[in-house]
Amino acid sequence: MDLSIIKDQLAEYTVGIAGAGGLGSNCAVSLARSGIGTLVIADFDKITEPNLNRQYFFRDQIGQFKADALKNNIEKTGSCTKVIIHIIKLSKNNIPEIFKDCDVIVEAFDLAEMKEMLAETVQTKLPGIPLVLASGLAGWGNNDTIKYRKIDDFLYTCGDESTEVSVDLPPLAPRVGIVANMQANTVLDILMNKI
């Protein structure tokens, strides 16, 4: 399929990004470069120096809201993607309203508790929208443990499903980037199959 046909197709769709940290920033940039029509990005946090080891931000953006800075960085790629941002802490109450018009939602949180909350909310309140989770991306190496799993038409997961970040096993750019791009690739797969 010709690249322009792919871009025309993807331009029709809206993708929700829940969290604009290591997963969300890298996944969003990848989706924008691919030609997704609209991204709805929600995050309440500001950029700090330790974020720069893996997140798609730059030194001069420290102190800015991640959602704001990510919108700017996406615009700098030259992509035509429309970016809608919500500077807000996502919760069971606001998730349905923020992401209701999305064709796919990407779970891009750090904490397992938040991942679980989002999964429960999307699966019960937005049951027709596919959700792409990330679970297990800490440390380095072990390329062969990072996998993709389709649970059903509405739930997918990317990651090794076993490593959790800790002081001795921090999140680093390569594995976070692999999983974020695996999520983006899963989104494209879901959307291209809608043709």
Partner: peptide, 10 residues
């Protein structure tokens, strides 16, 4: 039965 373990990190 499908089960997914959720690990912190992102």
């Amino acid at each position: 039965v499908q089960m997914i373990y959720l690990m912190s990190g992102g």
